[in-house]
Design a binder for these strands. Structure first.
Lengths: 209, 209
DNA sequence: CGAGTGATTGACTTAGATCAATGACCGTGG
DNA sequence: CCACGGTCATTGATCTAAGTCAATCACTCG
C-alpha cells in the first residue's frame, strides 16, 4: 500500500533519508524535481504563494504519505515543501523511478494503481468532511476501517490523532465517543472501538462461542 | 485536464454515452469492470455497504469527474455507483484503455499524470475542509483559482454550486461574500469575484492603464 | 518524584446550519 | 404578450453543535 512496498530493491537501496528541522524547506517551487518523497516522521506542508502573496496550503503530509508523486516524470516542483515539525523523509530519486517506470511495465502499473488508490481514499475523506456532525464523521470512519470479522476498529495512535484525521477537536471526538457509547451504538475496549450492529442484523458467518 | 482531452481519438470514438434516471445503478460492486466513466451531467454516487450493513458514501462524482479510474487494469468494481439525479455518463471501454496504456507509453504517462493531478486537487480540497470558517474556505478557493493577471475568479455555475464545493450552505456563502465585500476584501461584478490585494502589494508586472 | 501528554468532562461562546421570506430572473404555455 | 412556476440570490431570526477555555486524573519517562 505504501510506496515502499512495491518498489524494486535497487530503488529502495538508492533512496536517501533526510532529517528536517521545523521550518526547513524540503524543496521549493520551480526548482528541478529530484524525486518523490515519503514522510517517515513529522509533518511536511506543501504550499504555494497565491497571486496576491498569501501562502496557500495544498497538503500536509503525515507519516506514510508521499508527496510530489507527479515528479516521477521530471520537471519542477510545483509548490514549496516545508517541515511543520521536526521531520524525517525518504527521497526516491526521480531518474531511477522514471527509468523503472519506462522499462518495467509492472512497476508502471503499480505506480498508477497506487495513485488511483490514494485518490479513492482522498475522495472518501472529502466525503467524510461533507458531514458536519462529529458522530457522522466518526461513523463514516468506522465504516471504512472496520474489521469485518470483529466489527471493530483498532485505533492507530492516539485519539487526539484520530480527531485530527476526522477534522475535529479532540474534545468533540471524546464527547461523540462517550455519547455513542452511552447510547449503545459502540463499545470501547482498550484502543478498539466495537460497533454494535443495528437491531435486527444477524452476524452471518461469524457466530463465535 | 479532463480525461477526454488526451485520449486517442479511437477510444473517444469507441466511448459510449449512457443516460441514467435517478436511482439507476451505473455498476455494482464485485461486478467485472467494463471501463472508466466520466460524468457529463448530474451526480453519481459511489458507495459500499459496510460490514454492519450501512451504506457508506465514498465519492459523489459531478460533471467533469471520472470514476473507477483504477479499473483501467481490469478486475471488478469495488463499490456501487448510483445516479443521485438524472445523469449522463460516458464509458471508456476498459480493454481499449488498457491496450493503449500498454502499447503507448505517452498515454500511460498521461494517465498517471492525470491521476497525480487529481490527487493534488483532492488533497487541496481536504485542506480547505480543514478550515471551519466560511471565509477561510472561500479565501482558500479564491487563492487556488485566481487569475494571476486580473486577481479575480470567474465563478463557474451558480453560487449555490460553489457553496456545495466549499462544503457550506448557500446562505453561509452569501453571507461570507457579503461581509468580505463590505470590508473591502473582495469586490464582485457579475459572476466574477475580484480580490483586493492586501495593503502594500504592488501589482508588479501588470500595471494596466 | 515531577514534567509532559493523553483522556475526559464541564461551562461558555460562536459561527454555521436551519427555517423562512422576498425579490429578480427566466422560460413556458396559453 | 403576459401570467405562472421554478430557481437563484439575498437577508433575517433562531437553534445547535462544535470550538474554546479550563480543570482533573491517569500514565509514562527520565
Amino acid at each position: 500500500m505504501s510506496i515502499g512496498e512495491y518498489l524494486p530493491p535497487e530503488i529502495k537501496k538508492a533512496s536517501v533519508v533526510r532529517k528536517l528541522q521545523r521550518g526547513d524547506f524540503l524543496f521549493q517551487r520551480n526548482t528541478p524535481a529530484i524525486g518523490v518523497y515519503e514522510v517517515l516522521e513529522g509533518r511536511v506542508s506543501m504550499s504555494r504563494l497565491d497571486p496576491v502573496g498569501r501562502d496557500v496550503i495544498l497538503f500536509v503530509a503525515t507519516p506514510g504519505e508521499t508527496l510530489a508523486e507527479a515528479t516521477i516524470f521530471g520537471g519542477n516542483y510545483h509548490c514549496n515543501a516545508v517541515a511543520l515539525t521536526q521531520a524525517i523523509v525518504r527521497l526516491y530519486p526521480q531518474p531511477l523511478l522514471l527509468q523503472e517506470y519506462e522499462q518495467n511495465q509492472q512497476f508502471a502499473i503499480a505506480y498508477t494503481r497506487m495513485l488511483a488508490r490514494q485518490l479513492v481514499s482522498a475522495r472518501a475523506r472529502i466525503e467524510q468532511r461533507n458531514m458536519q456532525s462529529a458522530r457522522d464523521r466518526l461513523r463514516h470512519f468506522l465504516s471504512l476501517n472496520m474489521d469485518p470479522e470483529r466489527l471493530s476498529v483498532k485505533v492507530r495512535g492516539t485519539l487526539k490523532e484520530l480527531a485530527g484525521e476526522l477534522g475535529l477537536t479532540h474534545e468533540s471526538l471524546y464527547r461523540a465517543l462517550a455519547r455513542m457509547e452511552e447510547e449503545g451504538e459502540i463499545y470501547r475496549q482498550n484502543n478498539e472501538i466495537m460497533v454494535r450492529p443495528p437491531a435486527g442484523m444477524s452476524s452471518g458467518s461469524t457466530e463465535e462461542d
